[in-house]
Nucleic acid binder design. Sequence first.
DNA 1: CTGTTAGCGCTTTCAT
DNA 2: ATGAAAGCGCTAACAG
Lengths: 345, 345
Amino acid sequence: MDMATIADVARLAGVSRTAVSFAFNDPSRLSAETLQRVLQVADELGYYPNPIARSLINKRVGVLGLLIPQGTAMLFANPFFAELLGGIGQICDEHDFSLLLVPPVQGSLLRSLARAAVDGYITIGLEEHHPAMELLRRRKAPFVTLDGPALPQISAVNVDDFGGARQAAAHLIERGHREALVLGIRPAQGEITDGVAAYTGVSAARLAGYRAAFALAGLPLDEGRIRYCDSTRDGGRQALLDAWNGGARPGALLAMSDIIAVGAMDAASRLGLRVPDDLAIVGFDDIMDTQICHPALSTVHQPSEEKGCLAARLLIDRQGGGQRVEHHVLPATLIVRGSSGTQEG
Amino acid sequence: MDMATIADVARLAGVSRTAVSFAFNDPSRLSAETLQRVLQVADELGYYPNPIARSLINKRVGVLGLLIPQGTAMLFANPFFAELLGGIGQICDEHDFSLLLVPPVQGSLLRSLARAAVDGYITIGLEEHHPAMELLRRRKAPFVTLDGPALPQISAVNVDDFGGARQAAAHLIERGHREALVLGIRPAQGEITDGVAAYTGVSAARLAGYRAAFALAGLPLDEGRIRYCDSTRDGGRQALLDAWNGGARPGALLAMSDIIAVGAMDAASRLGLRVPDDLAIVGFDDIMDTQICHPALSTVHQPSEEKGCLAARLLIDRQGGGQRVEHHVLPATLIVRGSSGTQEG
DNA sequence: CTGTTAGCGCTTTCAT
DNA sequence: ATGAAAGCGCTAACAG
C-alpha cells in the first residue's frame, strides 16, 4: 500500500501541506479554485489522509475492541455471540465505530492488548483475575465488562444467570425429575493464574442456580453429574456421548448454553434417546435455533442483543467524557417448549 | 486513556527513550539491570508502547479489514457469515492478525475506507462497480474479493454459484415440479450507481443457474416468480408471506440462501403448508441449521469456512510480498434432505 | 551497552 | 486565504 502522502499532493498541486489538510478537514478555509485543484490531484493520486497518522494526533481511532478470551473460532461457533455482536454492531453503526475482534495472540490476550489500537474495549466473559483484566485496569483503559465481574469504577452488563439457571432446574424438578446431568461451559483456558478461580463468572453463576433449585427440593446435585465442554454444537454432542459412554443414564439435562443443548440433542438421537420422553433438556440463551430444532428447546431467555447494545452504548458514551458507571443485571426468564416435557406439564 | 508516554518512562527510569524502546522491542540490547529498571517503571506507570505511533513507523498494523456492504446487522443475522468469518478468523489467529469489521459509515463504504487502518481488505459480496471497489483498485490497496468479481490483478475466491443453483433447480424439476418461486438475495443498497447492474454477483449467478435448469427442461421461469429479500430469517419469512398474500401458490421454492429458506419454512408452517408435500424447498449454503430444522433442508453445499480460510490466506500471503494472484472457484454440490421430497424420490 | 537525532504522515496554532 | 513550523509517540540508524 505505497500510498501517496500529503506532501506529494501538495507538491503536485503547488500548495502547502496545510492546504491539502484543509481540503479534507475544513474545506471552507480554502478558495474554491484551490480546493478544486487539490482535490483533483488527490483523486488522481488516489490519495487519502493516512488514518494512522491522523489518529496519532486525534487520539481517537473510531474503533471499539472486543476482547474475546475464547478465540475467534469459539466465537463464531456459538450463535449466541452472533446475537450479542449484532447488538454491539448496531450501536457501532449508529456512532460510526468499527468493531475490532481481539482474540488471544499466541495464546495470550495480554499480547493482543499491546497491539490493538482502539478507543475502548468490551470484554466478553473475561474473568476478574485474568491478567488482561488487570492490565486494563492498571492502564486505566476505558472498558465495559460483559458477562464479567462488576468492578468498582467499571460499567458492567450482566444477566441474572443465577436466577435463570435456578428457574431451569426448578422447572425440571417440577416435571418430576430428581436428577440431571449438567453440561457446563468450559471457561477459556490460558492465562488463568489462580486454578481455584477457574470456574467463576457465568459458568459458576449458572451452576449455583442449578444447585440452589436442587437444594431447595432437598435433592443432591453431585459433582459427578457435572461435565464441562466447549460451548459449541460439537462440544455438547461430545459431552453427552462421553457421559453416556461413561455409564451415565440421565433422564434430564441442564445445558448451560443452547448450542450445547442442540449438540446434545444430536447425540441423543444418535443414542436412540427420545426428547423429551427419555431425556428432558433445558438450555440457556434462547438463540434462534431453539425454535427451529425438533422438538423446540426449552430454555432460559436472556436479552442477548440488548446486552450488546447496552454495553456498546455504555462504552461509547463514556468516550464523550461521561464518567457514569452503571452495573446492569438484566432479567433471565424460563421459556418452556417441547424439549422438557409435554406442554401440559 | 491518558497513557504514560515513552518519555515519561525514560525520565523516571533515568534512561533515554531509545533504551525504553529497546526494552520492548529488542531487550537483548540492554543490560540486565537497565532492562529490569525500565520494565519496572513501565509496569508501575502501566505503560505500553502506543500501537498507533508504532504502526506509523512499521507501516503495519496487524489488522485485516472485512468490507461488509450489507452492514453489521445483516452480517450477524445470517449464519453463513458466521461460518465464513470462522474460517477467516482461524487464519487470522494463526498469523496474529486481528479482524476489523468495516460496515458502511453513514450509508457509505467509501467513508469507512477513509478511516480504517488496516493492512488489507477482504471484500465480501462487493460488486464490481461499487465505488468502494473502484477506490480500492485506484489506491492499489491490497485486497482479495470474496463472492465478488474476478479482477485482473486481484485474487478472488468464489464458489460455483451458477452450477450449484442449476443443480438445485434441476433437482426440483426431476421431482416433478414445473414451476418454483425464487427467493433471491437482495444486494446491499447504497452506492450502486448503475441501476442496471444492481443484481449482479452471487445473486445474478444463482438466478442464472436456476434459469438454465428450467430452460433445459423447456420450462419458463418468469420474472413474476422472483422475489428479492434480505438474507435473514425474517426476510425469508416475510417474502413467502408476501408472495402468498399476493396470490402466489407455489409448489416449490428455490431460496438463494439457507437462512431465507429457514424463514420461509416458518412462514409455510404459519400458512398451514406442509413441507415438502405442499411446498418443496431447496436452499443454498448448507449452514448448520439445515440439519436441525424439520424436515431437514435440502440445499447446495458450499465450503463456507474454507472460502474464508482461502481468502484470508491469499491476503496475508500477499503481505509477505507474494504477488501471486489466484482466482478460485470452489465447487458447490447439491445435498438432498427431507425438504424437497421423500428420500426415495 | 546507551544516547542523539531524524523522521513516519498528519494536524494545527500562529503568522503573513 | 495560505503557509511555516511545531509536534503527536514512537523507532532505528548512527554514533559514542
